[in-house]
């Protein structure tokens, strides 16, 4: 880990964006090229009538998948970080154990059960899966926001206050920048988990990359399952490496300044 950081420092800023770009390109190629891979999937499933999932275009499914995960991520990040900031202020300290409890409770609830419980209230479709992802993704973000803000040295905060900064300025210009790497690590965990979990949405009628998987299991067609799994794994790897690059960039900036 340390050696790779060191190397990228020597080479410069550019190479760290290569890996996410590669994964994204691979994802793009496989989404657009899937219909032409008939021969390969025919080999997996020689007897099936059809080997390429065709009820919806792959790029539509990918778009919906990204949309669901993205919406969930935006809401979780804003909720989690705001809650984390609120309970580390003087006036919100009393809520700290409660927020921690609620966040870890969210991870204890199995997403399938949340999904199933959300359907009677919210109906079939995209909304229940977003709720399930929200609950499931909250813990890593809240936990890391709390850890990140707590790790900021008290003397640095004192110094900032002594320089005449208002508490709001201290938060915005000292605490948050210092805590960002840790918060970002939490966001990374949360989003990566949710990309895989979002596939469950297909069981309640939210059409996304889980669709081919469900269709494949129901019809006993391995080729469909493979296509769905391949695309989700590629998406997860692309996003994960993007976060990795972001983290490295942040490290560089923090260590150089």
């Amino acid at each position: 880990m340390r050696s790779s950081v060191h190397r990228s420092q020597q080479v410069g800023v550019k190479p760290q964006w290569m890996r996410p770009a590669c994964w994204a390109l691979l994802l793009l190629i496989s989404v657009l090229g899937m219909p032409y891979l008939d021969a390969i999937f025919r080999w997996v499933e020689p007897n099936a009538r059809q080997v390429i999932y065709s009820r919806a275009e792959f790029y539509t499914l990918l778009g919906r998948h990204v949309f669901v995960v993205g919406v969930a991520a935006i809401v979780t990040i804003s909720l989690g970080v705001l809650a984390g900031i609120a309970v580390t202020r003087q006036w919100g300290r009393d809520f700290l154990p409660l927020v921690g409890q609620v966040a870890s409770l969210g991870q204890t609830f199995p997403p399938v059960a949340v999904l199933a419980l959300a359907v009677p209230v919210l109906g079939f479709g995209t909304l229940p899966i977003i709720v399930a992802l929200l609950l499931y993704g909250l813990l890593p973000i809240v936990r890391n926001t709390l850890a990140g803000l707590k790790d900021v040295d008290a003397s640095i905060k004192q110094a900032a206050l002594a320089m005449g900064m208002t508490p709001w300025q201290v938060l915005r210009r000292v605490e948050l920048p210092l805590a960002t790497p840790v918060i970002l690590a939490g966001v990374r965990t949360s989003v990566t988990i949710n990309i895989a979990t979002a596939a469950l949405g297909a069981t309640v009628g939210a059409s996304n990359l889980g669709d081919p998987i469900i269709a494949g299991i129901v019809n006993g067609n391995m080729a469909y399952v493979l296509q769905g799994a391949l695309l989700i794994a590629l998406l997860a790897l692309a996003v994960d490496s993007l976060f990795d690059a972001l983290q490295q960039r942040l490290d560089l900036r923090l260590s150089s300044s």
Partner: peptide, 17 residues
């Protein structure tokens, strides 16, 4: 780590064949 990125749904499906 790689195993975890495969959705559980897919892993169940992939083991069928």
């Amino acid at each position: 780590n790689f195993l975890q990125t495969i959705p559980s749904l897919a892993l169940f499906g992939l083991l069928l064949a």
